[in-house]
Write a protein that binds this DNA or RNA. Structure first.
Lengths: 256, 256
DNA sequence: TGTAAACCTGCAAATAAATGCAATTATAAC
DNA sequence: GTTATAATTGCATTTATTTGCAGGTTTACA
């Protein structure tokens, strides 16, 4: 932070305006920095911060202050990045047509997708995710097939050779998976069992769609799920012509 | 995971917001990773995680934290006859011992039972109920096997010949079922598919326990699940010496 | 069952905050 | 202009918070 000093003498009101400007500009400010910049004691800064906080202009925390907009608004809609996921869900839902056989994974993005499915959709869904299965049960006109097996407690999906051989018995039209990490090489994950199941699901379907919020673009993990070539559709909340997709479009993948 | 470091000096609140972001983004985060990313000791991370968990923002687990959105959120007060079911749950839990193989059904009474199970219970559970399976996932020391198949949407259980033949492959110690109706003849139900699954479960287990609120004693429905003789334990919220059990005790059933 | 990792507790150092007080400065009344 | 009053500010002291570390314990996993 460039800590140039500001003015010889400042009125209290001016000083507080300066503080607000700093806080709104950087989303944060430290008492010590402000004191140095304004050439007043930290006590004065603290008193200012208390007043501003009292007036609801900012959020005072130990050591400084945070912008009010910064304040991570806990429980935005109980799901993180809710609006992004809703956009994704709308796009992904357009891929699913009546009569289709769809294999579908788990995760919060997929959950929003399932919520966004039209009530009159007639289709058959296959899944290993307990939460996705439950969500699908709310749709009157779909059939839900759950691949049973041993459950992984953290992710609430079933895994194991049994599950995989079950999946291999099916040939479906579309595979929809969320992911934790995707980059220009492909998709990666960190849970071996889950990776094996995902691989089987992709193999069992004619086409594969990946749904993810753009924040996850460019991150990687240890275990490879598939190459970019294996993916037919990539769906994020961004517009398809966003420059962030430059590395992906060359591969013949369709960005939605 | 790409572990770039973040900022020189972070305010506590900022750090916690960062943690929440990571957790929500990847559905989980390891204390060690977070410590490295934020350049603070793991102790600090742990303290943050404890605070956030206390505030209900995430779920703390050994080694890190999980996103809350992944978890089936449970609202106890919305369960009908909640206090009765809690009593039942306590009694039924006493039947389950370490190392047991238990087949367990669905319904709200069973849900309370699962909640009442001690966290240190080591056992293997088999179920066809999505909600029971999810609930069991909260218990760190149990194995959960889900019998997959076609799902019945309003009861959220899987049914079908596939499921039944799976059940027949197992031999378990105890079968725990809720029921809609029980009278001096035995247990009855109204859903044919569900009845077939229940029959298979009872047959696959050495002993059978029925959990139900006393309100359901004396009612009947069209389809027979089993005779009274097939039941080893009957568990309600009433005291075992209640006169309402006079018709049942003659059959050698144990009332809890 | 053994071992390494993760955990918790208490403690100490560092930092930040609150408080009282004195000095200074601004404001207003005369 | 002078003076009384109020507000502001800095400093010293006390208090609270945060953080890392040492230790002993628990937990997970092979």
């Amino acid at each position: 932070m460039n800590m140039h000093q500001v003015q010889a003498h400042m009125l209290k009101r001016e000083r507080q305006a300066f503080i607000m400007k700093q806080v709104n500009l950087h989303n944060r400010a430290l008492s010590a920095d402000l004191g140095a910049m304004l050439n007043v004691s930290e006590d004065t800064i603290r008193r200012d911060l208390n007043e501003l906080a009292e007036a609801g202009e900012l959020i005072k925390v130990h050591g400084g202050a945070l912008s009010k907009s910064y304040h991570y608004d806990y429980v935005p809609s109980s799901t993180y990045a809710f609006s992004e996921k809703t956009i994704i869900a709308q796009k992904a839902a357009s891929l699913i047509e009546n009569g289709m056989f769809v294999m579908i994974g788990g995760g919060t993005t997929v959950r929003e997708l399932v919520r966004a499915l039209p009530q009159n959709l007639h289709a058959t869904f296959f899944t290993v995710s307990l939460t996705t299965a439950l969500q699908l049960c709310d749709h009157p006109n779909v059939e839900v097939i759950f691949f049973g097996g041993q459950l992984v407690k953290n992710s609430q999906i079933s895994v194991g050779g049994e599950v995989i051989s079950r999946i291999n018995d099916i040939s479906a039209d579309l595979c929809i998976l969320g992911t934790n990490s995707i980059d220009s090489e492909g998709i990666t994950d960190s849970d071996l069992e889950a990776v094996q199941v995902k691989k089987a699901m992709i193999k069992a379907c004619k086409r594969t769609a990946i749904v993810t919020i753009s924040e996850k673009l460019g991150s990687t993990q240890r275990l490879r799920v598939c190459e970019l070539n294996d993916i037919d559709f990539l769906i994020t909340e961004l517009s398809p012509d966003s420059p962030r997709f430059s590395k992906y479009t060359q591969r013949g993948m369709i960005i939605l």
